[in-house]
Design a protein around this nucleic acid. Structure first.
Length: 449
RNA sequence: GGCUAAGUGGCAGAGUGGUAAUGCAGCGGCCUGCAAAGCCGUCAACGCCGGUUCGAUUCCGACCUUAGCCUCCA
Protein backbone atom coordinates (compact mmCIF):
# COMPACT_ATOMS: atom_id res chain seq x y z
CA UNK A 1 0.00 0.00 0.00
CA UNK A 2 1.30 3.41 -0.95
CA UNK A 3 -0.26 6.36 0.78
CA UNK A 4 -0.98 9.27 -1.51
CA UNK A 5 -1.79 12.66 -0.12
CA UNK A 6 -2.32 16.05 -1.71
CA UNK A 7 0.57 18.36 -0.88
CA UNK A 8 -0.43 22.00 -0.55
CA UNK A 9 3.16 23.03 -1.18
CA UNK A 10 3.37 21.44 -4.65
CA UNK A 11 -0.38 21.41 -5.36
CA UNK A 12 -0.21 17.79 -6.40
CA UNK A 13 -1.10 14.44 -4.96
CA UNK A 14 2.14 12.85 -3.84
CA UNK A 15 3.20 9.56 -2.34
CA UNK A 16 4.25 9.94 1.26
CA UNK A 17 7.93 9.12 1.59
CA UNK A 18 9.22 9.37 5.14
CA UNK A 19 12.75 10.63 5.55
CA UNK A 20 13.81 7.76 7.71
CA UNK A 21 12.53 4.49 6.34
CA UNK A 22 10.07 2.89 8.67
CA UNK A 23 9.25 5.85 10.88
CA UNK A 24 7.17 8.86 10.02
CA UNK A 25 6.32 12.11 11.80
CA UNK A 26 3.16 14.17 11.60
CA UNK A 27 2.27 17.43 13.30
CA UNK A 28 -1.22 18.86 13.36
CA UNK A 29 -2.23 22.23 14.71
CA UNK A 30 -4.40 21.64 17.72
CA UNK A 31 -6.87 23.87 19.51
CA UNK A 32 -6.56 27.04 21.48
CA UNK A 33 -8.28 26.03 24.68
CA UNK A 34 -10.69 28.78 25.64
CA UNK A 35 -14.12 27.38 24.79
CA UNK A 36 -16.12 24.37 23.81
CA UNK A 37 -14.93 22.69 20.61
CA UNK A 38 -17.13 23.00 17.52
CA UNK A 39 -17.59 20.77 14.50
CA UNK A 40 -14.75 22.55 12.72
CA UNK A 41 -12.35 21.54 15.47
CA UNK A 42 -13.73 18.04 15.22
CA UNK A 43 -13.13 17.82 11.49
CA UNK A 44 -9.59 19.07 11.94
CA UNK A 45 -8.98 16.20 14.35
CA UNK A 46 -10.89 13.45 12.54
CA UNK A 47 -9.16 13.93 9.19
CA UNK A 48 -5.64 13.53 10.60
CA UNK A 49 -6.90 10.67 12.71
CA UNK A 50 -7.77 8.70 9.57
CA UNK A 51 -4.35 9.50 8.16
CA UNK A 52 -2.73 8.44 11.43
CA UNK A 53 -4.54 5.10 11.29
CA UNK A 54 -3.24 4.56 7.77
CA UNK A 55 0.30 5.55 8.68
CA UNK A 56 0.36 3.34 11.70
CA UNK A 57 -0.83 0.37 9.69
CA UNK A 58 2.08 0.83 7.30
CA UNK A 59 4.99 2.14 9.32
CA UNK A 60 6.66 0.69 12.37
CA UNK A 61 6.86 3.99 14.18
CA UNK A 62 4.61 7.01 13.87
CA UNK A 63 5.02 10.23 15.81
CA UNK A 64 1.69 12.02 15.78
CA UNK A 65 1.97 15.40 17.47
CA UNK A 66 -0.99 17.62 18.22
CA UNK A 67 -0.41 20.68 20.33
CA UNK A 68 -2.49 22.47 22.91
CA UNK A 69 -2.28 26.25 22.72
CA UNK A 70 -2.72 27.40 26.30
CA UNK A 71 -1.20 30.86 25.97
CA UNK A 72 -3.15 33.24 23.82
CA UNK A 73 -4.87 36.61 23.90
CA UNK A 74 -8.23 34.94 23.40
CA UNK A 75 -7.66 32.92 26.54
CA UNK A 76 -6.76 36.03 28.48
CA UNK A 77 -9.94 37.65 27.23
CA UNK A 78 -12.06 34.62 28.14
CA UNK A 79 -10.52 34.58 31.58
CA UNK A 80 -11.51 38.19 32.16
CA UNK A 81 -15.00 37.66 30.79
CA UNK A 82 -15.73 34.52 32.77
CA UNK A 83 -13.91 35.71 35.86
CA UNK A 84 -11.99 32.46 36.06
CA UNK A 85 -8.23 32.16 36.27
CA UNK A 86 -6.32 31.37 33.12
CA UNK A 87 -5.12 28.05 34.53
CA UNK A 88 -8.64 26.95 35.23
CA UNK A 89 -9.84 27.97 31.76
CA UNK A 90 -7.09 26.13 29.97
CA UNK A 91 -7.21 22.98 32.08
CA UNK A 92 -10.98 22.84 31.82
CA UNK A 93 -11.11 23.21 28.06
CA UNK A 94 -8.12 20.98 27.45
CA UNK A 95 -10.01 18.23 29.19
CA UNK A 96 -13.23 19.00 27.32
CA UNK A 97 -11.35 18.92 24.03
CA UNK A 98 -9.61 15.65 24.77
CA UNK A 99 -12.81 14.04 25.99
CA UNK A 100 -14.79 15.23 22.98
CA UNK A 101 -12.18 14.01 20.52
CA UNK A 102 -12.02 10.62 22.20
CA UNK A 103 -15.81 10.42 22.17
CA UNK A 104 -15.76 10.94 18.43
CA UNK A 105 -13.54 7.91 18.01
CA UNK A 106 -10.20 9.61 17.55
CA UNK A 107 -7.04 7.92 18.67
CA UNK A 108 -4.83 9.75 21.09
CA UNK A 109 -1.84 11.40 19.45
CA UNK A 110 1.53 10.13 20.56
CA UNK A 111 2.59 13.62 21.64
CA UNK A 112 0.36 16.39 23.01
CA UNK A 113 2.68 19.23 23.97
CA UNK A 114 1.46 22.39 25.65
CA UNK A 115 2.85 25.82 24.96
CA UNK A 116 3.35 26.52 28.66
CA UNK A 117 5.61 23.47 28.89
CA UNK A 118 7.65 24.58 25.89
CA UNK A 119 8.59 28.15 26.83
CA UNK A 120 12.29 27.55 27.27
CA UNK A 121 12.49 25.85 23.88
CA UNK A 122 10.56 28.74 22.35
CA UNK A 123 13.04 31.23 23.81
CA UNK A 124 16.06 29.29 22.57
CA UNK A 125 14.46 28.92 19.15
CA UNK A 126 13.88 32.66 18.92
CA UNK A 127 17.46 33.31 20.01
CA UNK A 128 18.65 31.10 17.21
CA UNK A 129 16.54 32.92 14.63
CA UNK A 130 17.88 36.29 15.84
CA UNK A 131 21.44 34.98 15.78
CA UNK A 132 20.99 33.83 12.20
CA UNK A 133 19.89 37.32 11.23
CA UNK A 134 16.24 36.59 10.50
CA UNK A 135 14.61 38.45 13.36
CA UNK A 136 15.04 41.75 15.13
CA UNK A 137 14.32 43.10 18.58
CA UNK A 138 12.51 46.38 19.05
CA UNK A 139 10.66 47.83 22.05
CA UNK A 140 10.70 44.48 23.89
CA UNK A 141 9.17 42.76 20.84
CA UNK A 142 10.91 40.22 18.67
CA UNK A 143 9.80 40.25 15.06
CA UNK A 144 10.57 37.94 12.22
CA UNK A 145 12.10 39.79 9.31
CA UNK A 146 10.20 38.50 6.30
CA UNK A 147 12.51 40.31 3.89
CA UNK A 148 15.32 38.07 5.07
CA UNK A 149 13.61 34.92 3.85
CA UNK A 150 13.22 34.81 0.12
CA UNK A 151 10.82 31.90 -0.16
CA UNK A 152 8.19 33.74 1.83
CA UNK A 153 4.83 33.17 0.13
CA UNK A 154 5.55 29.80 -1.46
CA UNK A 155 2.94 27.87 0.47
CA UNK A 156 0.07 30.27 0.00
CA UNK A 157 1.09 31.31 -3.50
CA UNK A 158 1.31 34.94 -2.53
CA UNK A 159 3.83 37.38 -3.86
CA UNK A 160 5.49 39.75 -1.46
CA UNK A 161 4.39 42.94 -3.22
CA UNK A 162 0.81 41.76 -3.40
CA UNK A 163 0.71 41.07 0.29
CA UNK A 164 1.42 44.67 1.11
CA UNK A 165 -1.48 45.82 -1.07
CA UNK A 166 -3.95 43.79 0.88
CA UNK A 167 -3.04 45.04 4.30
CA UNK A 168 -6.11 46.56 5.86
CA UNK A 169 -4.89 47.25 9.33
CA UNK A 170 -2.51 50.01 10.26
CA UNK A 171 1.07 49.00 10.18
CA UNK A 172 2.30 48.80 13.75
CA UNK A 173 4.98 51.43 14.22
CA UNK A 174 7.61 49.02 15.46
CA UNK A 175 7.47 46.77 12.39
CA UNK A 176 9.98 47.16 9.62
CA UNK A 177 7.46 45.65 7.21
CA UNK A 178 3.78 45.03 7.74
CA UNK A 179 4.39 41.42 6.78
CA UNK A 180 6.71 40.89 9.73
CA UNK A 181 5.19 38.86 12.49
CA UNK A 182 5.69 38.60 16.20
CA UNK A 183 7.85 35.93 17.75
CA UNK A 184 7.79 37.39 21.25
CA UNK A 185 5.77 40.18 22.78
CA UNK A 186 5.86 41.91 26.14
CA UNK A 187 3.34 41.08 28.87
CA UNK A 188 2.03 43.52 31.40
CA UNK A 189 1.94 42.55 35.04
CA UNK A 190 -1.59 41.16 34.91
CA UNK A 191 -1.07 38.97 31.84
CA UNK A 192 0.85 35.71 31.75
CA UNK A 193 4.52 36.14 31.00
CA UNK A 194 7.91 34.57 31.31
CA UNK A 195 11.34 36.09 31.80
CA UNK A 196 13.31 36.23 28.57
CA UNK A 197 16.33 38.03 27.14
CA UNK A 198 13.82 40.62 25.84
CA UNK A 199 12.03 41.17 29.12
CA UNK A 200 8.93 39.60 30.59
CA UNK A 201 6.68 38.45 27.81
CA UNK A 202 4.99 35.65 25.95
CA UNK A 203 5.37 33.93 22.60
CA UNK A 204 3.58 34.89 19.42
CA UNK A 205 1.27 32.35 17.93
CA UNK A 206 3.34 30.97 15.07
CA UNK A 207 6.55 30.26 16.91
CA UNK A 208 4.99 27.79 19.29
CA UNK A 209 4.28 25.15 16.67
CA UNK A 210 7.75 25.36 15.23
CA UNK A 211 9.33 25.16 18.67
CA UNK A 212 7.29 22.15 19.70
CA UNK A 213 8.15 20.32 16.51
CA UNK A 214 11.84 21.04 16.96
CA UNK A 215 11.63 20.16 20.63
CA UNK A 216 10.34 16.70 19.82
CA UNK A 217 12.16 15.94 16.56
CA UNK A 218 15.36 17.96 17.01
CA UNK A 219 16.37 21.13 15.21
CA UNK A 220 17.88 19.42 12.19
CA UNK A 221 15.17 16.90 11.43
CA UNK A 222 12.66 17.49 8.65
CA UNK A 223 9.06 16.92 9.60
CA UNK A 224 7.37 14.48 7.22
CA UNK A 225 3.80 15.72 7.35
CA UNK A 226 2.21 18.87 8.69
CA UNK A 227 -1.52 19.42 8.69
CA UNK A 228 -4.21 21.78 9.80
CA UNK A 229 -7.27 23.66 8.70
CA UNK A 230 -7.36 25.37 5.36
CA UNK A 231 -7.61 28.72 7.04
CA UNK A 232 -4.20 28.25 8.60
CA UNK A 233 -2.30 28.23 5.31
CA UNK A 234 -1.83 31.95 5.53
CA UNK A 235 -0.38 33.38 7.58
CA UNK A 236 0.17 30.67 10.18
CA UNK A 237 1.83 27.94 8.12
CA UNK A 238 3.55 30.37 5.83
CA UNK A 239 5.15 31.89 8.90
CA UNK A 240 6.05 28.51 10.32
CA UNK A 241 7.94 27.65 7.15
CA UNK A 242 9.76 30.97 7.28
CA UNK A 243 10.85 30.55 10.90
CA UNK A 244 11.49 26.87 10.67
CA UNK A 245 13.68 27.28 7.62
CA UNK A 246 15.85 29.79 9.49
CA UNK A 247 16.64 27.41 12.33
CA UNK A 248 18.27 24.68 10.33
CA UNK A 249 19.59 24.03 6.87
CA UNK A 250 17.32 21.02 6.69
CA UNK A 251 13.95 21.50 5.04
CA UNK A 252 11.28 22.37 7.59
CA UNK A 253 8.56 20.01 6.36
CA UNK A 254 8.02 17.91 3.25
CA UNK A 255 4.32 17.35 3.03
CA UNK A 256 1.60 19.83 3.91
CA UNK A 257 -2.05 18.91 4.00
CA UNK A 258 -5.06 21.04 4.82
CA UNK A 259 -8.61 20.08 5.49
CA UNK A 260 -11.44 22.16 4.13
CA UNK A 261 -13.50 24.27 6.38
CA UNK A 262 -16.93 23.38 7.73
CA UNK A 263 -19.61 25.73 6.48
CA UNK A 264 -22.98 26.04 8.09
CA UNK A 265 -25.61 26.71 5.43
CA UNK A 266 -22.78 27.81 3.14
CA UNK A 267 -21.32 30.29 5.63
CA UNK A 268 -18.27 30.01 7.79
CA UNK A 269 -19.11 29.52 11.43
CA UNK A 270 -18.58 32.63 13.44
CA UNK A 271 -19.77 33.97 16.71
CA UNK A 272 -21.12 37.09 15.07
CA UNK A 273 -23.35 35.06 12.74
CA UNK A 274 -24.41 32.90 15.67
CA UNK A 275 -24.06 29.73 13.64
CA UNK A 276 -21.33 27.95 15.58
CA UNK A 277 -22.24 24.31 16.16
CA UNK A 278 -20.70 23.02 19.35
CA UNK A 279 -20.03 19.36 19.92
CA UNK A 280 -21.59 19.29 23.36
CA UNK A 281 -24.84 20.47 21.78
CA UNK A 282 -24.72 17.80 19.09
CA UNK A 283 -23.93 15.09 21.61
CA UNK A 284 -27.26 15.68 23.32
CA UNK A 285 -29.34 14.36 20.44
CA UNK A 286 -27.01 12.40 18.21
CA UNK A 287 -24.78 9.44 18.63
CA UNK A 288 -21.11 9.96 18.09
CA UNK A 289 -20.65 7.57 15.21
CA UNK A 290 -23.25 9.50 13.24
CA UNK A 291 -21.44 12.77 13.85
CA UNK A 292 -18.17 11.19 12.78
CA UNK A 293 -19.73 9.84 9.59
CA UNK A 294 -21.25 13.24 8.88
CA UNK A 295 -17.88 14.94 9.25
CA UNK A 296 -16.25 12.40 6.95
CA UNK A 297 -19.01 12.42 4.36
CA UNK A 298 -17.29 14.98 2.18
CA UNK A 299 -13.76 14.61 0.91
CA UNK A 300 -11.45 16.25 3.43
CA UNK A 301 -10.19 18.91 1.04
CA UNK A 302 -13.66 20.05 0.08
CA UNK A 303 -15.61 22.44 2.17
CA UNK A 304 -18.21 20.55 4.15
CA UNK A 305 -21.55 22.27 4.02
CA UNK A 306 -23.37 21.43 7.22
CA UNK A 307 -27.13 21.61 6.83
CA UNK A 308 -30.15 20.23 8.60
CA UNK A 309 -29.89 17.13 6.43
CA UNK A 310 -26.23 16.32 6.97
CA UNK A 311 -26.81 14.33 10.12
CA UNK A 312 -29.90 12.63 8.70
CA UNK A 313 -27.91 11.33 5.77
CA UNK A 314 -25.18 10.08 8.07
CA UNK A 315 -27.69 8.42 10.35
CA UNK A 316 -29.19 6.56 7.41
CA UNK A 317 -25.85 4.98 6.62
CA UNK A 318 -25.12 4.24 10.26
CA UNK A 319 -28.48 2.53 10.69
CA UNK A 320 -27.96 0.57 7.54
CA UNK A 321 -24.62 -0.69 8.76
CA UNK A 322 -25.93 -1.48 12.22
CA UNK A 323 -28.83 -3.37 10.73
CA UNK A 324 -26.66 -5.49 8.52
CA UNK A 325 -23.96 -6.56 10.94
CA UNK A 326 -24.43 -10.10 12.09
CA UNK A 327 -24.10 -9.88 15.88
CA UNK A 328 -22.75 -13.44 16.00
CA UNK A 329 -19.50 -12.56 14.38
CA UNK A 330 -16.39 -12.49 16.43
CA UNK A 331 -13.51 -12.30 14.09
CA UNK A 332 -10.06 -11.12 15.05
CA UNK A 333 -8.79 -11.83 11.58
CA UNK A 334 -7.51 -8.66 10.00
CA UNK A 335 -9.40 -8.13 6.77
CA UNK A 336 -9.15 -4.44 6.11
CA UNK A 337 -7.12 -4.34 2.95
CA UNK A 338 -9.79 -2.83 0.72
CA UNK A 339 -10.77 -0.03 3.03
CA UNK A 340 -7.09 0.82 3.44
CA UNK A 341 -6.54 0.88 -0.29
CA UNK A 342 -9.49 3.22 -0.74
CA UNK A 343 -8.38 5.54 2.02
CA UNK A 344 -4.76 5.52 0.96
CA UNK A 345 -5.70 7.49 -2.14
CA UNK A 346 -5.83 10.92 -0.56
CA UNK A 347 -8.16 9.85 2.25
CA UNK A 348 -11.15 9.26 0.02
CA UNK A 349 -13.76 8.82 2.72
CA UNK A 350 -16.83 9.31 0.49
CA UNK A 351 -15.64 6.40 -1.63
CA UNK A 352 -15.05 4.44 1.56
CA UNK A 353 -18.67 4.98 2.53
CA UNK A 354 -19.79 3.77 -0.88
CA UNK A 355 -17.76 0.64 -0.20
CA UNK A 356 -19.37 0.19 3.21
CA UNK A 357 -22.77 0.73 1.70
CA UNK A 358 -22.09 -2.02 -0.86
CA UNK A 359 -20.88 -4.32 1.89
CA UNK A 360 -24.09 -3.98 3.87
CA UNK A 361 -25.90 -5.88 1.14
CA UNK A 362 -23.78 -8.99 1.35
CA UNK A 363 -23.05 -8.72 5.05
CA UNK A 364 -26.50 -9.88 6.00
CA UNK A 365 -26.07 -13.20 4.27
CA UNK A 366 -22.37 -13.64 4.57
CA UNK A 367 -20.63 -13.77 7.94
CA UNK A 368 -17.26 -13.03 6.44
CA UNK A 369 -18.51 -9.87 4.76
CA UNK A 370 -20.11 -8.92 8.01
CA UNK A 371 -16.73 -9.21 9.69
CA UNK A 372 -15.10 -7.18 6.94
CA UNK A 373 -17.75 -4.54 7.31
CA UNK A 374 -17.32 -4.35 11.04
CA UNK A 375 -13.55 -4.18 10.80
CA UNK A 376 -13.63 -1.63 8.02
CA UNK A 377 -15.84 0.55 10.19
CA UNK A 378 -13.50 0.02 13.07
CA UNK A 379 -10.58 1.12 10.92
CA UNK A 380 -12.47 4.33 10.24
CA UNK A 381 -12.90 4.81 13.96
CA UNK A 382 -16.52 3.71 13.98
CA UNK A 383 -16.95 1.20 16.73
CA UNK A 384 -20.20 -0.66 16.16
CA UNK A 385 -19.20 -3.87 17.90
CA UNK A 386 -19.20 -2.34 21.36
CA UNK A 387 -22.33 -0.44 20.47
CA UNK A 388 -24.14 -3.63 19.54
CA UNK A 389 -23.35 -5.00 22.96
CA UNK A 390 -24.55 -1.88 24.71
CA UNK A 391 -27.80 -1.94 22.80
CA UNK A 392 -28.99 -5.09 24.47
CA UNK A 393 -31.76 -4.02 26.82
CA UNK A 394 -32.26 -5.32 30.31
CA UNK A 395 -34.17 -8.55 30.98
CA UNK A 396 -36.96 -6.66 32.64
CA UNK A 397 -37.41 -4.33 29.70
CA UNK A 398 -37.24 -7.20 27.26
CA UNK A 399 -40.02 -9.05 29.07
CA UNK A 400 -42.13 -5.92 29.13
CA UNK A 401 -41.64 -5.29 25.44
CA UNK A 402 -42.32 -8.86 24.45
CA UNK A 403 -45.47 -8.95 26.51
CA UNK A 404 -46.73 -5.88 24.74
CA UNK A 405 -45.88 -7.37 21.38
CA UNK A 406 -47.74 -10.55 22.23
CA UNK A 407 -50.75 -8.55 23.30
CA UNK A 408 -50.61 -6.56 20.10
CA UNK A 409 -50.40 -9.65 17.97
CA UNK A 410 -53.44 -11.10 19.70
CA UNK A 411 -55.32 -7.91 18.90
CA UNK A 412 -54.12 -8.02 15.31
CA UNK A 413 -55.20 -11.60 14.94
CA UNK A 414 -58.69 -10.68 15.98
CA UNK A 415 -58.80 -7.68 13.70
CA UNK A 416 -58.70 -5.06 16.47
CA UNK A 417 -56.18 -2.95 14.62
CA UNK A 418 -56.82 0.36 16.33
CA UNK A 419 -55.91 -1.06 19.70
CA UNK A 420 -52.93 -2.86 18.18
CA UNK A 421 -51.69 0.39 16.64
CA UNK A 422 -51.99 2.11 20.00
CA UNK A 423 -49.57 -0.40 21.47
CA UNK A 424 -47.20 0.13 18.58
CA UNK A 425 -47.27 3.86 19.26
CA UNK A 426 -46.55 3.21 22.90
CA UNK A 427 -43.51 1.15 21.98
CA UNK A 428 -42.25 3.73 19.50
CA UNK A 429 -42.41 6.28 22.28
CA UNK A 430 -39.88 4.29 24.30
CA UNK A 431 -37.64 3.79 21.29
CA UNK A 432 -38.76 0.36 20.10
CA UNK A 433 -39.29 -0.18 16.40
CA UNK A 434 -41.44 -3.08 15.24
CA UNK A 435 -41.08 -5.01 12.02
CA UNK A 436 -43.74 -7.48 11.05
CA UNK A 437 -42.21 -9.96 8.68
CA UNK A 438 -43.53 -13.34 7.59
CA UNK A 439 -45.91 -13.55 10.49
CA UNK A 440 -43.13 -12.81 12.96
CA UNK A 441 -42.72 -9.55 14.79
CA UNK A 442 -39.14 -8.43 15.18
CA UNK A 443 -38.21 -5.48 17.30
CA UNK A 444 -35.19 -3.37 18.02
CA UNK A 445 -34.26 -0.66 20.43
CA UNK A 446 -33.14 2.71 19.13
CA UNK A 447 -29.50 3.02 20.25
CA UNK A 448 -30.04 6.65 21.23
CA UNK A 449 -32.92 6.02 23.57
C1' G B 1 -8.45 44.50 -5.30
C1' G B 2 -4.85 40.05 -4.75
C1' C B 3 -4.16 34.78 -3.52
C1' U B 4 -6.13 29.68 -3.12
C1' A B 5 -9.76 26.24 -4.16
C1' A B 6 -14.35 24.75 -6.19
C1' G B 7 -18.65 24.61 -9.68
C1' U B 8 -21.56 16.97 -11.38
C1' G B 9 -29.07 14.91 -11.27
C1' G B 10 -34.23 17.78 -6.37
C1' C B 11 -30.32 17.45 -2.22
C1' A B 12 -25.57 15.21 -0.57
C1' G B 13 -21.30 13.45 -2.94
C1' A B 14 -17.25 10.16 -5.76
C1' G B 15 -14.98 9.49 -10.40
C1' U B 16 -13.20 9.38 -15.50
C1' G B 17 -9.56 11.39 -22.42
C1' G B 18 -14.34 7.38 -25.10
C1' U B 19 -20.90 10.40 -21.98
C1' A B 20 -20.80 9.28 -15.08
C1' A B 21 -20.37 5.47 -8.41
C1' U B 22 -23.12 5.72 -4.11
C1' G B 23 -26.63 7.72 -0.32
C1' C B 24 -31.22 10.47 0.60
C1' A B 25 -35.59 12.09 -1.75
C1' G B 26 -39.14 10.77 -6.07
C1' C B 27 -41.78 7.13 -9.07
C1' G B 28 -43.46 1.71 -9.98
C1' G B 29 -43.63 -3.16 -7.78
C1' C B 30 -43.03 -7.22 -3.97
C1' C B 31 -44.08 -7.71 1.27
C1' U B 32 -47.80 -5.74 5.26
C1' G B 33 -54.37 -5.36 8.15
C1' C B 34 -51.91 -0.57 7.76
C1' A B 35 -47.07 0.78 8.66
C1' A B 36 -41.81 0.26 9.33
C1' A B 37 -37.70 -2.18 7.45
C1' G B 38 -35.98 -4.83 3.43
C1' C B 39 -35.79 -6.30 -1.64
C1' C B 40 -36.41 -5.49 -7.07
C1' G B 41 -37.00 -1.98 -10.89
C1' U B 42 -36.93 3.18 -12.56
C1' C B 43 -36.49 8.77 -13.74
C1' A B 44 -32.80 12.33 -13.50
C1' A B 45 -26.66 15.80 -13.72
C1' C B 46 -20.90 17.11 -15.55
C1' G B 47 -21.55 26.46 -14.80
C1' C B 48 -20.64 29.18 -19.62
C1' C B 49 -17.53 30.08 -24.09
C1' G B 50 -13.43 28.91 -26.93
C1' G B 51 -8.87 25.69 -27.85
C1' U B 52 -6.10 20.82 -28.13
C1' U B 53 -7.97 15.86 -29.67
C1' C B 54 -10.75 10.95 -33.80
C1' G B 55 -13.27 12.06 -29.22
C1' A B 56 -13.48 16.32 -23.08
C1' U B 57 -17.38 16.33 -18.06
C1' U B 58 -12.15 14.97 -17.47
C1' C B 59 -6.38 18.70 -20.36
C1' C B 60 -5.47 24.25 -21.62
C1' G B 61 -7.31 29.47 -21.74
C1' A B 62 -11.03 33.29 -20.96
C1' C B 63 -15.55 34.39 -18.52
C1' C B 64 -19.39 33.91 -14.77
C1' U B 65 -20.62 32.21 -9.90
C1' U B 66 -19.50 30.44 -4.92
C1' A B 67 -16.42 29.72 -0.69
C1' G B 68 -12.00 30.45 2.10
C1' C B 69 -7.63 33.42 3.00
C1' C B 70 -5.24 38.41 2.85
C1' U B 71 -7.27 40.56 10.51
C1' C B 72 -8.19 36.12 15.49
C1' C B 73 -9.70 31.47 13.40
C1' A B 74 -9.55 24.23 12.66
Amino acid sequence: MTIKLYNTLTRKKEVIKPISGDSVSMYVCGPTVYGHPHIGNARAAIVPDILYRLLRSKYGSVKYIRNITDVDDKIIKASKEEGISIDKITSKYTKVYNDNMADLGNLKPTHEPKVTDTISKIISTIEKIIKNGNAYVIDSHVLFDTDSFNNYGDLSGKKLEEMLDGVRIDNAAYKKSSRDFILWKPSEDNTPGWESPWGKGRPGWHIECTSMIKDILGDDTTLDIHGGGNDLIFPHHENEIAQGSCISREKYCNHWFHNGIVLVDKRKMSKSLGNVILLNQLFKNNDKATIRVALLSAHYRQPLNWTSRTLDNALNLVNKIRGSINPEINSDEQVQTEIKEILSDDINTPLAFKYLSDLTKSAKKNVKDSAILLQSCSFLGLDFQTQLKRMEPSKLLTVKIENLIQKRNELRNTGRYEEADAIRKELIAIGVTLKDNNGQTEWELDPNS
